[in-house]
């Protein structure tokens, strides 16, 4: 399973739409086995989405995401967990333990991932 996380410093990017750097994490048996940093500087949104799809990303963990971007990624069947905040290592750890619903990981004002929460049911 491959997870993509847009990052900024050591934190998750606040806005996916404008994020330029992504961390690709390969997960096997509940453990991170490989991490790659990808820069999307100057790339269009379609190039970003296509790149993630071509590189078999299954999950996208991100901060704020516009409806437009949400549709683009979900049209490519990439599962999205939006409205996340915090240190990327902590977010990744919480994802592996299925603890992302803890209030500390959810952006202010975005209670329980809002209308998108149901997409998370059943875990991964």
């Amino acid at each position: 399973m491959r997870v993509a996380i847009p990052y900024w410093g050591n934190r998750i990017s606040p806005v996916l739409d404008t994020a330029e750097n992504f961390l690709f994490v390969d997960i096997q048996n509940g453990k991170c086995v490989k991490k790659d940093e990808i820069s999307f500087s100057g790339k269009s949104h379609f190039e970003k989405v296509d790149y993630l799809k071509k590189h078999s990303v299954n999950w996208l963990l991100c901060g704020a995401i516009s409806d437009y971007y949400y549709n683009l990624f979900s049209a490519k069947r990439i599962k999205i967990i939006p409205w996340l905040r915090g240190d990327i290592d902590h977010v990744l750890e919480a994802f592996l333990c299925n603890n992302l619903f803890e209030p500390g990981f959810v952006m202010p004002g975005c209670k329980g991932f809002g209308r998108r929460r149901r997409r998370l049911r059943g875990g991964f």
């Binding site: 900024w8 990017s13 606040p14 806005v15 739409d17 901060g63 905040r85």
Partner: peptide
């Protein structure tokens, strides 16, 4: 922003404001 005051105060401004320019 749709963010209540009690959740905004004390949080990082970029996690609350979520603006296109926060990162760059």
């Amino acid at each position: 922003t749709g963010v209540p005051e009690e959740e905004a105060v004390g949080s990082f401004c970029f996690d609350v404001f979520k603006a296109s320019i926060c990162e760059t």
